[in-house]
Design a protein around this nucleic acid. Sequence first.
DNA 1: GTGGTCTAGACCACT
DNA 2: GTGGTCTAGACCACA
Lengths: 133, 133, 133, 133
Amino acid sequence: MAFSFMLSNSSGVPFYRQIVNQVIYGVANGMLKPGERLPTVRRLAVDLQVNLNTIAKAYSELELRGILNTQQGTGTFVSDNNEGIDPGEKEKEIERLCSRFLDEVAAMGARSGDAIAVLRKIENKRKKATRGT
Amino acid sequence: MAFSFMLSNSSGVPFYRQIVNQVIYGVANGMLKPGERLPTVRRLAVDLQVNLNTIAKAYSELELRGILNTQQGTGTFVSDNNEGIDPGEKEKEIERLCSRFLDEVAAMGARSGDAIAVLRKIENKRKKATRGT
Amino acid sequence: MAFSFMLSNSSGVPFYRQIVNQVIYGVANGMLKPGERLPTVRRLAVDLQVNLNTIAKAYSELELRGILNTQQGTGTFVSDNNEGIDPGEKEKEIERLCSRFLDEVAAMGARSGDAIAVLRKIENKRKKATRGT
Amino acid sequence: MAFSFMLSNSSGVPFYRQIVNQVIYGVANGMLKPGERLPTVRRLAVDLQVNLNTIAKAYSELELRGILNTQQGTGTFVSDNNEGIDPGEKEKEIERLCSRFLDEVAAMGARSGDAIAVLRKIENKRKKATRGT
DNA sequence: GTGGTCTAGACCACT
DNA sequence: GTGGTCTAGACCACA
């Protein structure tokens, strides 16, 4: 299965950050292997239907952090040594997200257990929808 | 223990949003009770050392969301209708919240399963903390 | 026919609320279609001769209410999910609206029966007007 | 049946204006007869649970418009000649209210006929509730 | 260029 | 004194 990007415009997370995060996650996960080539800026911009600059910004942040490696005229590749990735940092971000979510659930007077059940339900619905694509 | 606000200016989260979140959290936890009065806009602005309008913006978002109730010339209060919402509607609201949460998780490049695991972890941590009260 | 805004400064209704109402009306009438782009904050501010922040306030209330959808750096658009709301939820929303309306009528010291008569009158007038289009 | 005031705090209409409107409506309707005595400022403030100044403001606006008549040390009475009341003015206000209501109904994609049905339903529910008081 | 946040300061309406 | 509205102007983040 090839690596693929997905942008959500309802999440409030900036597009360029979504791309950055997904690359980091892909690398950390082994879905993107060292040396593997990423789509060109232009290609990805077309695929994701966003502005060229948005992709460029994401790639350049990833290059600055040493996760990607751009070779003029050849393409963009996953670096060999992935020191730019700090798993703890991401973990903290997820925790913050989850914490806020639980607060909002509680503010509505719902139990967190119920909310998790709803999460699973939506998750399943989405999986089915994706399969159909 | 009185409810109190705290702003971090290094978190990147806008001041007004921090206030919104803290009120939501306070209501969720019962630290802010229905009908309870919140600090005046002016008072809170002085306390938190931010501009009046910043507080006003936070309060007015909370009013739009039905969490606060403001009476011109009198003050700002916690809504008391947080209970009387009918269950079907609540269900939908929770689904919307969950859906957005999953979008945010995906936008971070994380898997929803991982996020749910984190949710459970936080949930447990909080249960223990509450027991201590 | 293009959609256009108009502000009255003698009506006592705040500028930002006039804008909110006009967008609602425009969406209701199909003059603003889902996905359609609204004038930029800056542009509208110049056109209507009001401050930037006044427009921003209106747009942001409309976003909170789910009627508009804003993408930083790109623009502000009419939401396209106004259709997909499930009927039960809509019913509740209408009840809330009606309840508030009756409160307002009572607050004016009028009888609800009289108000309903006026509603019918306006309804008929509008039907005729539409027929002429 | 004695004349009685009712304040709604969910209508958004200022308290003092609700009182003014209700007196005007009462007079126009014959429920308040010329020469009839109104409750004292203090009494009404206690009954309606609002600030003294709020009642005072309402009474003084009504006196300015010639609808009420205050005699120091004796009380406040309905004037004999009620020229302060312009029925057209009130009619217009109600029309504006109704017009906005229909817009909001339409913005939700509902039919105005349905909304009116809901209005009647709520109206009946409220009548029953009041009877029980 | 687009929207988002924040400040400083003014004036108004309501209680 | 309480909240609401508006302006002018600055700086930032995003596409």
